[in-house]
Design a protein around this nucleic acid. Structure first.
Length: 258
DNA sequence: ATGGCTGAGCTACTCAGA
């Protein structure tokens, strides 16, 4: 079972790239972030032609998350956390997998920059609420997969120049501590579990040849509850889509479970 | 190197991204 997470930076602007990716990689489930559209304008038919059903939690212009699946999913939910700004940032679903019920939690964490503004406060509050709810949820169902654009650089190794980001909303210790706190609830950062010292990224800025210079950062993650680590077959950051014409600034991260 | 590109909404330009 191949599950991928990809911040597509507009599903409509990216639809041709996404279709090409599906043909190349044929994932079972796509967890998309930053779809940047209302539900009524989501390209359901494009995915349907490949045999996928789309579950969409969109909004106008910004944010928005979706789960695209070849397999039956249950209990689709858009209310995982109370979001004071009513932004569409979390969609959850249940997947039956080998006698386990895995809760899929697809997230788009607020960016939080600049740090001296209410945007940063919103990110902190959002993460605080998210952690509280994960803590509750893991007591009910120990099989949880959290994936998406976390907008968190977990460690110094996860960015091309850490000094530039140590006081940024993505790299601040206060924010990285939240990520560690989340992991300490009973999760593994699957990429880092399988790649102890490898330096790879999932995002490269559009500006100033960042992609060509490999000025990137690892901010898209798969967290698996400890009860699911025995099911990991592979984890891969697929850089090909980032190299394409009209690409997203993020590239897909691919998890295979068996 | 806090700005450079890119997308949405809209049709000139602002807001947002990380």
């Amino acid at each position: 079972m191949k599950i991928i997470s990809w911040n597509v930076n507009s599903v409509r602007a990216r639809i041709e790239n996404i279709k090409y990716y599906i043909k190349e990689s044929s994932p079972d489930i796509l967890l998309l972030q930053e779809i940047k559209t209302q539900n009524e304008n989501f390209p359901n038919d494009d995915f349907k032609k490949f045999g996928y059903t789309s579950y969409v939690f969109g909004q106008k212009s910004y944010n928005g998350v979706a789960i695209i699946s070849k397999h039956q999913l249950n209990n689709i939910n858009n209310n995982f956390i109370k979001d004071d700004l009513k932004q569409s940032r979390v969609i959850t679903a249940e997947l039956k997998f080998k006698k386990k019920i895995i809760e899929l939690i697809n997230i788009y964490v607020p960016n939080g920059n600049p740090v001296d503004t209410e945007k940063y406060e919103y990110k902190k509050e959002w993460l605080k609420r998210f952690l509280i709810n994960i803590k509750k949820r893991i007591q009910k169902n120990s099989n949880i997969l959290i994936a998406g654009d976390f907008n968190i650089i977990p460690d110094e190794i996860d960015v091309y120049d850490f000094k530039r980001y140590e006081n940024d909303a993505l790299g601040r210790l206060e924010i990285r501590k939240k990520y560690r706190e989340l992991i300490n609830l009973g999760f593994k950062d699957v990429y880092r579990l399988k790649n102890k010292t490898k330096q790879e990224y999932t995002f490269w800025d559009y500006f100033a040849g960042s992609w060509q210079k490999n000025y990137g950062m690892r901010i898209d993650h798969f967290l698996l509850s400890n009860s699911l680590t025995e099911n990991i077959k592979s984890i891969n950051i697929n850089k090909k889509p980032r190299s394409k014409v009209k690409s997203s600034d993020h590239t897909p991260i691919e998890l295979e479970i068996i």
